[in-house]
Nucleic acid binder design. Sequence first.
DNA 1: CTGACATCTTAAACCAGATCAAGATGTTTT
DNA 2: AAAACATCTTGATCTGGTTTAAGATGTCAG
Lengths: 200, 200
Amino acid sequence: MKDNHKPIRPLLEYFDRVISLTDDEKELVRTKFKPHLYLKRQFVLQHGNICKTFNFVVRGCLRLYKVSSDGTYHVLQFANENHWILDLTSFHKHKPALFNIDALEDTQVLRISYDDLIDLYIKAPKFDRIFRVLLENHFMQQQERLAQLVSFTAEERYEAFLNTYPDLQDRLPQVQIAAYIGVTPEFLSRIRKRLAENNG
Amino acid sequence: MKDNHKPIRPLLEYFDRVISLTDDEKELVRTKFKPHLYLKRQFVLQHGNICKTFNFVVRGCLRLYKVSSDGTYHVLQFANENHWILDLTSFHKHKPALFNIDALEDTQVLRISYDDLIDLYIKAPKFDRIFRVLLENHFMQQQERLAQLVSFTAEERYEAFLNTYPDLQDRLPQVQIAAYIGVTPEFLSRIRKRLAENNG
DNA sequence: CTGACATCTTAAACCAGATCAAGATGTTTT
DNA sequence: AAAACATCTTGATCTGGTTTAAGATGTCAG
C-alpha cells in the first residue's frame, strides 16, 4: 500500500495555522477534500477544459504553465508540498482554462470541487476567512513575481527562483526552471556558469 | 464646492453587485470608508512606508509602480474608476512597501484603514466573502497580466493594454503606457507607427 | 509673449538573450 | 548492451528592444 494513509493531516495543519478549527470543521474538511495521486507527466488540467478542483499538494510537485502560439511554454507557478494550485479564473467562472497543470513528479494532492467548496463556505463561514487569507498570500507571491519579471535581469530572476523555491533547485530539470524564469535552457546554462565562476 | 458629495455611492453599488447589503451594512460602509482627494502627482504611498489604506477609486486614475536599482520604473497596475489599488503585502504584513502609488490625474478615492477593515470583518462577516471575491477578481486579472508578460511580444502587450484599459489610451501620456507594457517610450513610438501603417 | 519643461518622433550604435547546430553525458527501454 | 531518448554544455550568428542623441511640437507659468 502507498503511503497515502492520512494525507489529510498536512491540510488540517495548514488551515489550523490560519485560524484554529473546531472538530466539526475538521470533519467537514475530511469529507470535502478527496485525496488523489497524479503520476509524473499526468495532466491535472488541460488547456480548454474547465478547472474543476482547487488543489492542495501534499507530496510531489505540479506546475501551472501556458503554451504560446509559437509553441514555447512558460511556467507561471510551481506547487510543491503545502502549496495550492489551480486555474482560478476557469474554476470560478466555469470558463475554458488558458493554462495547463501537470505533474513533474508523482504527486499526492487533496482536492475539492467547486460545489463542495461553495457548500463548505455555507456550512462553515470560517472558510470564507481562511480562503480570503489564502488568496491574499497567493496574490502577494504573484505580485512579487510580477515585479521581478518586469524589473529583474535573467540572472536576478534565477536568484529569485532559488529564494522562492529552495527545495526545487535540485528536484527539477533545468528546462523547467528556464521556462519559469523566462529564458531558454541554453541561456540558463550560461547564467549558472557565470555564477559558479564568480563564486568559485 | 467640489463634486465629492456622495462619493460613497459607486462603492455601495460595487459591493451590491457582489452580494446585496442590508441597511446596517451600508451604514457601516459609510462610517468606515473615508473620502480623500489626491491631486495629480501626489503620492498615495511611498516606497519604504507602510501601506495604511485599502483604496477604491471613485474618479481619476492612480498607478502602482516599482523603481528599480537602475532608476527605471515599471507600472504594475493602473486603477481608474471602480478599481482597487494598494500594496497588499505592506498592508497586511505591516512591512515597508516595495511599491509607490501616485496620482496620474486628480483622483477621488474612498479608503479604509487596516483596523477599520478588520473591525468591518468582525461586525459584518459578509465582508469576508465580499473581499474574498474581490481578491479573486484582482488575482485573476493579475494572473492574466503575468501570462501576457511572459508569452507576448511588446506589440501584443500593447494591444492587450488597449483591451484591458480602453479608457486610458487617450488619458495617459505614452511614457506611462510604455512603463506598463515594459518597453521604452521610444520603442512604443515605433510600435504605434507600425500598427498605424498596417491598419491604414 | 517667452522661457522652461513635458511629450513625441526618428536614427545609429549597441546589447541581452534567442536561435541554430553540434557534441557530451546520463537514463530508460527493449 | 544497444538503441532511443532526455539532459546539459558550448560556440557562432542573429534579433528585439535599449541607449544615446537630436530635433519637432505642445503647454503652461510668469
